[in-house]
Simulated scan of single mutants.
Amino acid sequence: MTSRPGDSDHGGSPAEPHFLVCAHCGTRAEEPQPTWICSVENGVRHYFCDACARDNLRAIEGRLDSAWW
């Protein structure tokens, strides 16, 4: 007996790897990085690596209401 694509004993095909990509420099990370930041702009999530976040911290903070910092 043969199985159809996606059929398996584990409930379907294995999950594809999910990569985070820095929206500024394009650096890729294979797993969540605790030093990266996430920004939601117009309902879309953008991730920034720690180097880009550090280099642009003042601009990032400048967009927040003072209650957030």
Rank of each mutant, 00 (worst) to 15 (best):
A29M: 04
E41A: 09
E16D: 10
Q33H: 05
V21P: 01
R28F: 03
G43Y: 01
V44P: 04
H10E: 02
V21D: 00
C25T: 05
V40M: 04
H18S: 12
C22L: 00
R58F: 07
R58S: 13
E41Y: 12
C52E: 11
T35N: 15
T27P: 01
Y47C: 08
T35S: 15
C22R: 01
E41Q: 10
G12I: 08
C22V: 03
A59C: 09
D55G: 07
L20C: 07
P32M: 13
C25H: 05
I37T: 11
H10G: 01
Q33A: 12
A15E: 07
R58L: 12
E16R: 12
V40R: 08
P5K: 02
H46K: 15
A53I: 00
G62T: 04
D9Q: 05
R58T: 12
A23H: 08
P5H: 01
P14D: 06
H18D: 10
G6V: 03
E61P: 01
D50A: 11
R45P: 10
I60R: 02
A51F: 00
W36S: 14
H46E: 15
H10Q: 06
E31V: 11
G62N: 04
A15N: 05
W68C: 03
H24Q: 14
S39R: 14
F19D: 13
F19R: 15
L57K: 14
I60K: 02
E30F: 01
A59E: 13
R4T: 05
C25A: 02
E16C: 03
T27Q: 09
A67V: 10
S13R: 15
G62S: 11
S66L: 07
S39T: 12
G62A: 14
A23I: 01
C38I: 15
G43K: 03
G11W: 07
A67I: 08
S8N: 11
N42D: 15
G26C: 09
L57T: 09
G11F: 07
R63Y: 08
P14C: 02
D7P: 00
G12Y: 02
A67N: 10
I37E: 07
T35C: 04
M1A: 12
C49V: 06
D65H: 12
E41H: 11
S13F: 10
R63D: 05
D50W: 03
H10N: 10
C25E: 04
S39Y: 08
L20M: 13
D65E: 12
W36M: 13
A15D: 05
R58M: 09
R28H: 03
E61K: 00
Y47I: 13
P34K: 13
F48Q: 02
R45K: 09
R45W: 04
S3R: 11
A59T: 13
P14I: 06
R54H: 11
A15L: 10
W36F: 15
H46L: 15
N42S: 14
H24Y: 13
L64C: 02
H24I: 15
A67K: 09
T35I: 02
H24W: 06
N42W: 12
I60H: 06
G6R: 07
E30G: 15
Q33N: 14
P32N: 11
F19Q: 10
G11P: 03
R45M: 11
G11C: 08
E30L: 03
A67D: 11
A51R: 06
E31W: 10
